[in-house]
Amino acid sequence: MNVFEESLIAIILALMVIVAFVQVVLRYGFNSGITGALELNRILFAWLILFGMSYGVKIGAHLGIDSLIRSFPRPLFRAFAVFGAAAAFLWAIILIHGTWLSIFGATSRGGGAVDYWVRFFKLPLGLDDLVYPSFLREFAGQDRVHRWVAYMILPIGLGLFAMRSAQALVEIALGRRELIIASHEAEDLVNENKDVLRD
């Protein structure tokens, strides 16, 4: 699990570069192209973002403004840091499956990413341009790639984000981590480079 996001992000980036490169070579060199290459890259980019969210929490790379809470006493600062991690976790849980909010009187037409994905799983809708390879078409029962295949990342990515937010929450509460966001990167860079222009 430690290298899961890193490996998938590397694979997705590599696939995006390969698809774009091959498409450019085919388009300008041979006046042809890959059907659905643009749609595939768009889907891969969405997957990259949703995997990147959890990876950003894991390494503390999400940007945030902490100048106000840093002026608070240490116990109050930690309370706000815990609240921030809890809010990130709650946001992910609401987006994964929000029907439980009806307890508080909230109403919605859908139940979040899981409900959205299940609806597409039940429908035989295909993507616009992306088609299955010929050897998979009979097994899939249609030519175009099912939408649920592309949208599978919604519950998976949000689930990973919820898990990493819960980990950050525990680490902050135990004092092993300061914040869920990137902490004072700009100040660290200024301090590291303050003597560069002196010469």
Rank of each mutant, 00 (worst) to 15 (best):
I103M: 14
G98H: 02
M152N: 12
Q167F: 03
L44M: 10
Y132F: 09
A162Q: 08
P73M: 07
T35L: 13
N41E: 07
P124H: 13
F80T: 12
I93Y: 00
A87I: 13
N41F: 09
D66H: 03
L160S: 06
L44N: 06
G52D: 08
G29Y: 01
K58L: 00
W47P: 02
A150G: 11
G110D: 11
L48V: 00
H97V: 10
L169M: 09
D66S: 08
G110H: 08
G84H: 05
I93N: 01
F161P: 04
A85I: 03
R164I: 02
G98Y: 01
I156P: 00
H62A: 11
F121Y: 11
V114M: 07
P155A: 13
L68R: 14
F104K: 13
L50Y: 09
G112E: 03
A92K: 05
D143F: 01
S54F: 06
P133M: 04
G36R: 13
F161R: 14
I96C: 01
L101V: 04
P155I: 14
F77W: 11
T99K: 07
R176S: 12
G33F: 03
G98W: 01
L154W: 14
F120E: 02
I103R: 15
S71G: 12
V170I: 15
R176Q: 12
P124D: 15
K122P: 00
L160N: 04
F89E: 04
G126S: 03
I34Q: 01
F51P: 05
T35S: 11
I59A: 02
L169H: 02
A37T: 06
W47K: 00
W91H: 06
G36K: 06
R176L: 14
E39C: 08
F139Q: 05
A168N: 04
I156M: 04
R147T: 15
S54L: 11
F51S: 12
H97Y: 15
S108Y: 01
S102N: 15
F161E: 14
I49F: 10
A85D: 03
G84L: 07
M152G: 15
L123A: 12
G112P: 00
I43R: 04
G157H: 13
F77C: 06
